[in-house]
Write a protein that binds this DNA or RNA. Sequence first.
DNA 1: AGCAATAAGTTATACTATAACAGAATAGCC
DNA 2: GGCTATTCTGTTATAGTATAACTTATTGCT
Lengths: 163, 163
Amino acid sequence: MDNLAFESGHDHQHCIDQALQQARQICRERQQRLTPIRELVLKLIWQSHRPIGAYELLPALAEAGFNSAPPTVYRALEFLQEQGLVHRIASLNAFVGCPHPEQAHQGCFLICRQCHSTSELDAGPVHATLEQSARAVGFTIEQETVEVIGLCPNCQAGESIDG
Amino acid sequence: MDNLAFESGHDHQHCIDQALQQARQICRERQQRLTPIRELVLKLIWQSHRPIGAYELLPALAEAGFNSAPPTVYRALEFLQEQGLVHRIASLNAFVGCPHPEQAHQGCFLICRQCHSTSELDAGPVHATLEQSARAVGFTIEQETVEVIGLCPNCQAGESIDG
DNA sequence: AGCAATAAGTTATACTATAACAGAATAGCC
DNA sequence: GGCTATTCTGTTATAGTATAACTTATTGCT
C-alpha cells in the first residue's frame, strides 16, 4: 500500500478498504480476533490520514450501539497497536493508521501542523543514523519515536497564496 | 557542558551547579527573569539526568514555601522550555534538563527503559537524514521529536549479570 | 453442554495540562 | 520616590488523556 497522505486528490475510500482488508487478513493469519469494535475503531481511524484522539472515537462507537466508555476504545487501540495496525503519535496523544502493517516496525512520521495530514516514512534511514549514534555511546535501541512537525506540500502552496 | 548521563560515577553536583550558573547567565544576557520558582524548578529537574513529571515537582515546591498548584510548575516549565533550558519528552510526559541551552535546538534523546537516565545527542545527523526524506516528499520541517527507548551501557552490564 | 480463555460493559479514579481571574511584585518612567 | 504598565504568582475550577478493578458476555475448545 502506498502512502497517499499528502496527495489531496486520492481515492481515500480505497485506502480505507485496503487497510481493512489487510487487517482482516493479518489477523486471520495470526489467529487474532478482529472483533466488530476493533474493526470499527480501525475504520474510524482510517477515515482520514490525520491522527485522531481516543476520545474523538467514542461518539461514533456510541452511534454504532457499542459501549462508549474510554476503556472500550483504549482496549481496541491497544490491540490494534499490538498488531501494528495503528501507531500512536506521542507528541499529539493521537492515533493514525499504519499503511504497512504486515511487518512490525517503528514509525517515522511527517505531520502537517496546518491540515494535520500525516505521512509515515520508511524509518530505515533515520534508524541507521540513530543506531550509529547510539552505538557510539554504548546504548542499545529498543524503540524509536520520530515525529516531525512542519508543513506538507499542499499547505505550503496554500500559505504562499494566502500570504 | 558535556553530557554525563550514562556515566554513573560522575560528580552530579557539578552538573547541577553548572546548569544553574549557565541558566543565570543566559537569562541575564537575554534580559529574562530567572525567578526563584523558575530556578528551583530547574534545579529540581537537574537533580538527576532522568526526565521528571510536572506533578512530581509539586511537593518540593510546597516544601520551599511556594504555591504548589499545577499552574505554578507548568508556568515555570513553559518559561524554561522557551529559554531552551529544559526539554519536554513527549513519550514520557516528562521534562529533562538541557545540557546545551546556549543555542536553540531540537533534542534527540536516548532514554534508558530501566534506570530512565536520558542522554541528549547532537540532533544534527538525524536532522540531516530527516531533512533529506522530507525534501523528497516536499515537506518542510519545523520541529522534530526524536526519542529513543532502550538500554544504557550501565543497565546492559547489569542485565548480563543479573540474568 | 460444559469449561477455560478472551473480550466487552461498567464504575471509578489517576494522571496530565490549561483556562480564567485576582492579587503581588517588578521595571521603567516622570 | 511615587505612578503605571507589565510580568509574575496565587487560586479555583475544569478540560483532556489514560487506566484500575470488577462484572458480565462471548468465544473456542473438548
